[in-house]
Write a protein that binds this DNA or RNA. Structure first.
Length: 696
RNA sequence: GGCGAGGUAGCUCAGGUGGUUAGAGCGCAGGAUUCAUAACCCUGAGGUCGGGGGUUCAAUUCCCCCCUUCGCUACCA
């Protein structure tokens, strides 16, 4: 028996869980864990809410409540939805738990004492009015890449660029709306560049060879570019306090503390025994196997940074595999929490009560294992109706109905039971299934389970007891009994294959056949003797007139869901629907004096060309009325160079010159921008306005 | 622009260290059947495996170029 510690990414506690999270991470993790348990392995499945970090503090501020209120709310929603859906965590914790603060704090202190960190004083934005340093997410400004005005200091949500706060144009503090100033502050960096060179790390990355191509490729890409030191502390007051005397007002970087959440949750759950699931054991063969299930957005943290932390700490095992999935799209569009384009788990559970297995089944059949995939409601309906109802559910019901019809539900017999002619195919399916499961190919494995039902249907159709059964002929009765016994044996084996995927269905099947929990043990090879041990083939008795495992999904239900989504889409597209994200709040007050320092004037574009090797930049020659000058502008996504010659524009003329891609840019074109970050020139309306006319 | 992963039947996806007729499910067409949730079972039609070049006796599979989708990354005063 091997020991496993399986984790699923800690969901961030600032919003509920949607089907993309499930298909990408929680469902595959749960399936794998249930498979390991079925094999009789010693496995612990750990997860919890990730409750630190800046977005939560922003959300709290917006709602006028404390960060703790925010995380309390979403922690409860997520935990309840997960458990109702059947994600079988052994323990679901949270990073605001005291034991987590203690564990993360100690972990940091150990690395500090070992001299792992590099202390560095850097210039960070500081809000003089709020008297605090600003984390990346607390700074907004114009995205230098796409021109989106509400980009965050770490990332632009419009174009997805990852940024440094100092990259932002016109940075503003989210606290006061004022322009922040740069001020020195001390932080502790993980020298990932050095650790990358270490023998131990080089040894560790060899195991990437066995990982899925998408992850291996992404990691190789990071490693080839060379890793950079990364700050493991932040100037913020929400999180785990940095356990050092000179670290007032600093907390651990959320990505430092979050993965430690896996450890603290294990501690909380197992108390004294936790180390058996995390640490190297005296005898190497007793070492636990650590596997992280995540979505592809987390690869670098789980495959590289966290292992580096574990490695430099010492004593811990490193992840054996990080099976990350790609993204799930929804009805042709990317799932987006901020645009509310999602199917939320807690809403599904309400709209489809008792239909958890149906969603589990469909999400597994379309899981983005090797590439992005797509969920549509029509497809959901088709898969439930054509596969679960028609093939699986219908098969079980026909066997039950026939048994009642010819044997009043009792197949009890003392004569020997012959195997059916498809046992070889079944055996092959079990082997295919095992191989797929071991390689994290869950869609393939699940299809093996459906395949079993197809075999059953085929067998039944070939034997056609409804034609051959003759109550007055003992031989015919015996043969029919054998056929039905075999049909039940196929059902039982199907239950085993289905158990990790649709646990409630499996439960119903095992209840129907009175198969005790201690018999539901996986075997990767089947034959009659094994099946007979698994379930007593001589004593099959059922006491139900029919078994409907799955109900059809009606057109109206699907229409309703599609309608729900269309409404969301309409709301998203209405430019007049102002939401907090869409329309920028008014900035802090300024003075006429400040405004009049701007030399804003009209100019005409004389020449325009793309800046080579860039996506966004145009090099423009402008006639400003006073001179002809070069300006580089990030508008290539919205204007083609040939088409803007002669275009009148408004520009800021006295902006300090700056070199961009080696070109000296003297000024800045002013652009109007909508909430999507789309840009437009601002053009004077009358011909009397000529080059050099001022704007005031 | 650089890097990574994809582009295979109408749809959702498998597969391939180069080698006889390229696979599955759904959908579609035809047949058979009635135990069953109009379900099951059988048969069939459908693809120059993103495009173009090259290497080879032979390429969908190897090499080069291009187009395209997704992600990471650079440039936007």
């Amino acid at each position: 028996m091997s020991r496993y510690l399986i984790t699923a990414a800690l969901p961030y506690a600032n919003g509920p869980v949607h089907i993309g999270h499930l298909a990408g991470c929680y469902l595959p993790a749960d399936i794998y864990v249930r498979y390991l348990r079925m094999k009789g392995e010693d496995v612990k499945f750990i997860c919890g809410s990730d409750e630190h970090g800046v977005p939560i503090t922003i959300k709290a501020r917006q709602l006028g409540i404390t960060p703790q209120d925010v995380v309390d709310k979403y922690h409860a929603i997520m935990r309840d939805a997960f458990f109702q859906f059947g994600i079988s965590f052994d323990h679901y914790s949270r990073t605001s738990a005291p034991i987590h603060h203690q564990t993360a704090s100690e972990f940091f202190k150990t690395l500090y004492d070992k001299g792992v960190f590099v202390e560095e004083i850097t210039q960070q934005f500081y809000d003089e009015e709020a008297k605090q340093f600003l984390a990346d997410r607390y700074i907004t400004g114009t995205c230098p890449r796409c021109g989106y005005e509400n980009a965050y200091g770490d990332q632009c949500e419009n174009c997805g660029a990852s940024l440094n706060p100092t990259d932002l144009i016109n940075p503003k503090s989210k606290l006061s709306g004022k322009t922040p100033v740069l001020k020195p502050t001390k932080n502790w960096f993980l020298p990932m560049d050095k650790i990358q060179q270490s023998k131990e790390f080089q040894e560790y990355i060899k195991r990437f060879d066995n990982w899925k191509p998408n992850i291996k490729g992404q990691c190789a890409s990071w490693l080839n570019e060379g890793l950079q030191p990364r700050a493991m502390t932040r100037d913020l007051d929400w999180g785990v306090k940095v356990p050092l005397p000179d670290a007032e007002g600093k907390v651990l970087y959320v990505w430092f503390d979050a993965p430690i959440g896996y450890i603290s949750a294990t501690k909380e759950f197992l108390t004294a025994d936790w180390e058996k699931y995390w640490k190297n054991q005296p005898d190497k063969k007793d070492n636990p196997t650590l596997i992280h299930f995540i979505g592809k957005d987390n690869i670098v943290f789980h495959a590289i940074i966290f292992p580096m932390m574990l490695m430099t700490h010492g004593g811990y095992v490193l992840p054996e595999n990080v099976p990350a999935n790609e993204f799930l799209n929804l009805e042709g569009d990317k799932i987006s929490t901020s645009r509310n384009w999602a199917v939320w788990l807690h809403e599904y559970l309400q709209d489809f009560p008792g239909r958890e297995d149906e969603l589990r089944y469909v999400l597994t059949s379309i899981a983005p294992e090797t590439k992005d995939s797509e969920f549509t409601w029509k497809d959901f309906q088709a898969r439930v109706n054509n596969e679960l109802c028609a093939i699986v559910g219908n098969y079980v019901n026909r066997v039950v109905v026939l048994t009642n019809k010819y044997f009043a539900g009792d197949l009890n017999t003392s004569s020997a039971v012959e195997s059916h002619p498809y046992q070889k195919e079944m055996d092959e399916l079990f082997q295919r299934y095992t191989k797929a499961m071991n390689n994290y190919q869950f869609r393939e494995a699940q299809s093996c389970a459906v395949e079993v039902a197809r075999i059953g249907n085929k067998y039944l159709t070939e034997k056609e007891p409804w034609k051959k059964y003759d109550a007055s002929n003992a031989e015919s009765v015996a043969e029919t009994r054998t056929v039905l016994i075999n049909c039940f044996s196929i059902i039982a084996q199907m239950g085993l294959l289905f158990k990790p995927f649709v646990p409630r269905t499996a439960e119903k099947i095992f209840n129907l056949l009175n198969i005790a929990a201690d018999k539901q043990i996986w075997t990767n090879k089947v034959n009659l003797a094994k099946v007979d041990d698994f379930m007593d083939l001589h004593k099959i008795k059922i006491n139900t007139s029919s078994v409907i495992l799955y109900q059809k999904i009606e057109d109206e239900q699907i229409e309703k869901q599609i309608q729900k989504l269309l409404e969301k889409k309409t709301m998203n597209q209405q430019p007049s629907a102002p939401s907090e994200e869409a329309v920028k709040a008014q900035m802090a007050e300024t003075t006429f004096d400040d405004f009049s320092k701007m030399d804003i004037r009209v100019a005409t574009i004389l020449e325009a060309e793309r800046v080579p090797k860039t996506d966004k930049l145009l090099k423009l020659l402008l006639d400003t009325g006073i001179d002809k000058r070069t300006v580089v502008s990030g508008i290539a996504a919205y204007y083609e160079p040939e088409k803007i010659i002669g275009q009148k524009v408004v520009m800021l003329a006295n902006l300090a010159p700056r070199k961009i891609k080696g070109i000296e840019s003297k000024g800045m074109i002013l652009m109007a921008e909508n909430e999507k970050g789309e840009l437009s020139f601002i053009t004077p309306q009358k011909e009397i306005i000529t080059n050099g006319s001022t704007v005031k």
